[in-house]
Simulated scan of single mutants.
Amino acid sequence: MEQLIKSLTELEKLKTVERGLNVGNRKESSAEHSWSCMLIADVVLDYMEEPLDRLKVFEYLLYHDVVEVYAGDAKFNNPEEMKLKQEKEEKAIQKITSFLPNAGRFEKILHEYENRETRESEFAKAVDCIDSCIRNLNDSNASKEDGFTEDLIRQKYHPHVSKFQFTLELFENLMRQLIALEKV
């Protein structure tokens, strides 16, 4: 019971991890981002041209940023943060697996997601990218001055969203809107 309570209280801290994007007058939390990704995935899965296991997609998205409880969020427009990302995340995984009762399952899910070992993990990563585009559309304060240029976003996201025809089309439509609103 003690291990379970420690696990739950530690994982709940994902709500306090700030990301680079805004929600109203505050920063979005990594927990909000994970929830948003799951919601987007649930809707977009109905448009996919191939059958994907919804539960697997949800597992990937539920856990994909849990390491940020200890590693923080690395913004891809910040080269210094990106240099340290892998090392910080590996240490975070070690810490989480030291107390998580289902550590083996957690490691398997995270490993499959990070290495894109399944079509579901590829889809989950595409959704992760799409979520940031949607968040920028909804952020009235987002602008080109934030350092997220069209080229940088395309370089980072295109390899993932292009794995599926529908996510690529959705991404391109979102990018057109971001460009028209001068947010990138």
Rank of each mutant, 00 (worst) to 15 (best):
M1A: 14
E2D: 14
S7K: 01
L11Q: 02
L11W: 00
L11M: 10
L14N: 07
E18Y: 01
G20C: 09
N22W: 15
N22Y: 14
N22V: 08
V23G: 08
V23D: 11
G24A: 12
R26G: 11
R26F: 14
K27G: 08
E28A: 08
S30A: 15
A31Y: 11
E32L: 06
E32M: 06
W35K: 10
S36K: 15
S36F: 15
C37G: 05
M38C: 12
L39Y: 14
L39M: 10
L39I: 14
A41M: 02
D42E: 15
D42Q: 15
D42A: 12
D42V: 02
M48L: 06
E50A: 14
P51L: 08
P51G: 10
L52Q: 07
K56V: 07
V57N: 08
V57W: 06
V57P: 05
E59P: 09
Y60Q: 09
L61V: 12
L62Q: 11
Y63E: 05
Y63M: 15
H64N: 06
V66A: 09
V66R: 04
E68Q: 15
E68G: 08
E68N: 12
G72H: 00
D73G: 10
D73H: 10
K75H: 09
F76W: 09
N77E: 14
N78D: 15
P79F: 12
E81T: 06
M82T: 03
M82L: 14
L84R: 03
K85Q: 01
Q86T: 04
Q86C: 02
Q86G: 03
E87N: 03
K88Q: 00
E90S: 00
K91C: 03
A92G: 04
I96G: 00
I96V: 03
F99V: 00
L100I: 02
P101S: 02
A103I: 02
A103N: 03
R105S: 09
K108S: 13
I109L: 02
Y113K: 02
Y113S: 05
N115K: 10
R116W: 03
R116K: 13
E117I: 11
R119W: 08
E120K: 04
E120R: 07
S121E: 15
F123T: 06
K125W: 05
A126N: 04
A126L: 04
V127K: 02
D128Q: 01
I130M: 10
D131F: 09
S132M: 07
D139L: 07
N141V: 09
A142W: 07
A142S: 15
E150Y: 09
E150T: 07
L152F: 07
R154G: 01
K156F: 05
H158W: 15
P159F: 03
S162G: 03
K163V: 05
K163F: 00
L170E: 09
L170W: 14
E172H: 04
E172K: 01
R176C: 11
L178R: 00
A180F: 05
E182Q: 13
V184K: 04
